[in-house]
Structure formats: C-alpha cells, structure tokens
C-alpha cells in the first residue's frame, strides 16, 4: 500500500469537516485587523479588577463593556465573507471535489470561525481568572463566563455565516451591522417616537404598532446570556431560557446557512 493511501474514511454525513474548520480558523486568525482586535481583547482582561461581577468580562449590560464591543467587532470581522469568499475564489469547488458534503463544508467554515473566536475570547478570560485567583476573590461564576458568552457570540456568527451563503463578498457583515442598527432604531427610536406622539395626544396607530413591534423585537436577536453568569454570581435561581433560545438560534441559522449554501452551489452548477 502506498503511503498516500487514505487510511481513515471521511464520513459523508458529518455536520462539520474538521480539516476545513482548522484551516478556516488558521486563515481567519492571520488577518491583520483580527490580530489587532485580539490584542485589544486580551488587554481588557487586565481591567477585570474593576468589574462588579464575572458577568462583565464579556457582557456588562445595560451599557456594553469594551470587551463586549470588541467581541462584536471581532465576530463581524471573522465572519466576514466566510462562505462567499470561498465560493467566489473557486476554492469551494475544489474542496467539494473531495469526499466532503456541502453541509460539512458549511459546518466546517462556521466551526472554524467559531474556534478562532473562542481562542480570542480565551485570552481575556484566562487573564481575568488569573487576576481573580491572585486577588483571592475567584468564584465559580468565572468558569461560566466564557462558555456562556461564547454561545451568544456563536449565535451571531451563525447568522453572519448564513448571510454569507447568499450575499457576495463581505456583504454579510455589512448587512448584519445594518440589521443591528435597524433593530436598535426599532427598539429605542420607535418607542421614543411613540411616547412623544402619546404625549401630544396623537399617534394611537403608531403607539399600537410600536407596542406590537416591541413584543416581537426581543426575539429577533440572540438573547444574551450574561445574566446567567450574574445569577450564578448572586446565587440566584438560574434562568436557562435565554441560553436555550440561543442554542436553538444557532441550530436554526446553521441549518438555514447550510441549506442556502447548497442551493447557491447547485444554482451555480445549473447556470
């Protein structure tokens, strides 16, 4: 047998191609702006002595912490063109000639960007934990901070990857950003306009519309799970609802993204 004879089968029905994931993580972590974001993020770990609770390593509601904003920026950066770049360069077609399914390709790219994000988030978390241990105020909630924050980040990444299956170039991150601003406008701008109209005894229709929109809006984004860390820190009852919502969100956009990628690839073949 030749030394190049494949020895292990590549499963055709797997959700993630790990060679693709590792390649994607490596490639994404080498971009200059990503490195700059990661260094900044690591630096925020040293700020942990000023935190009220471990939930603030990546969260810090109501006002997002610096780390939170950097993680958002890094997510947009690492997810930018994650699928479309491969399709447009033609490398996706070369990869799909190997024994790997389209779903495993999509899963591999998403998991790779996720791995890169996780590695970036690991640094401030380790620094925070180390400082807490050194100061003697380490609590189990610190352990929860990273995985919980990562679930929320992965949820955003799944959405961005799904968008990349249908949009060209880096359009996915741009539209995710536009979507986030529209959400913020609907959440706060519309509510403000509605309140103003109410004060002026006008705009019943606007108020009715706004109240309906406010009911739906919270479910149009990942829930944000830093509360879970806060609850653990406060020894309060833990509400797993937001975490479950975000896990379902990840599964939904992962599936949708893989489906859209498959459709785009089949459409290209038919063209």
């Amino acid at each position: 047998m030749s030394d190049a004879t494949p020895t292990s089968a590549t499963a055709s029905n797997q959700l993630i191609s790990w060679p693709i994931a590792l390649q994607c993580a490596r490639e994404r972590l080498r971009s200059g702006p990503a490195i700059a974001f990661i260094v900044l993020l690591a630096c925020t770990g040293f700020y942990s002595s000023g935190m009220r609770s471990p939930a603030q390593i990546f969260g810090g509601s109501p006002i997002p912490s610096i780390a939170h904003l950097i993680v958002i920026g890094l997510t947009l950066l690492l997810g930018s063109g994650i699928i479309s770049e491969e399709i447009e360069s033609g490398h996706a077609q070369l990869v799909l000639l190997r024994p790997v399914s389209r779903a495993a390709f999509f899963g591999g790219r998403l998991a790779g960007a996720g791995l890169a994000l996780f590695a970036a988030m690991l640094l401030p978390w380790i620094i925070s934990c180390a400082l807490a241990i050194a100061a003697g105020d380490f609590v189990p909630a610190y352990l929860l901070a990273l995985p919980v924050a990562f679930v929320e980040t992965l949820a955003w990444l799944a959405l961005i990857a799904a968008l990349s299956s249908v949009l060209r170039g880096s359009g996915n991150s741009l539209w995710a950003l536009i979507g986030a601003f529209l959400w913020l406008f609907a959440r706060y701008g519309l509510a403000g306009a509605s309140a103003l109209a109410n004060q002026l005894h006008r705009g019943e229709l606007l108020q009715a519309f706004s109240s309906k929109v406010q009911l739906v809006l919270p479910f149009l984004r990942p829930q944000g799970t830093s509360e879970l860390v806060e609850q653990q820190y406060q020894h309060a009852a833990i509400d797993f609802g937001p975490l479950l919502f975000d896990l379902v969100w990840i599964a939904a956009f992962w599936t949708l993204g893989a489906y859209l990628f498959s459709r785009r690839e089949l459409a290209r073949r038919r063209a």
């Binding site: 190049a4 494949p6 020895t7 292990s8 089968a9 590549t10 191609s17 060679p19 693709i20 590792l22 390649q23 490596r26 490639e27 080498r30 971009s31 491969e86 360069s89 033609g90 490398h91 070369l94 990869v95 190997r98 024994p99 790997v100």
Partner: peptide
C-alpha cells in the same frame, strides 16, 4: 486555481490531504 490567500502552499496541501482521509 485560487487558494486561500493567508495559507501557505503546504497548508493548502495538508488541508486537501486531510479531506482525502490521510
């Protein structure tokens, strides 16, 4: 052919070899 710009040629080949099950 176009390959991922930030990977080296060796890494590209390692990826494709891994996909083949090596």
């Amino acid at each position: 052919p176009l390959f991922p710009r930030r990977l080296t040629g060796l890494e590209v080949l390692e990826l494709h070899a891994a996909l083949l099950g090596l």
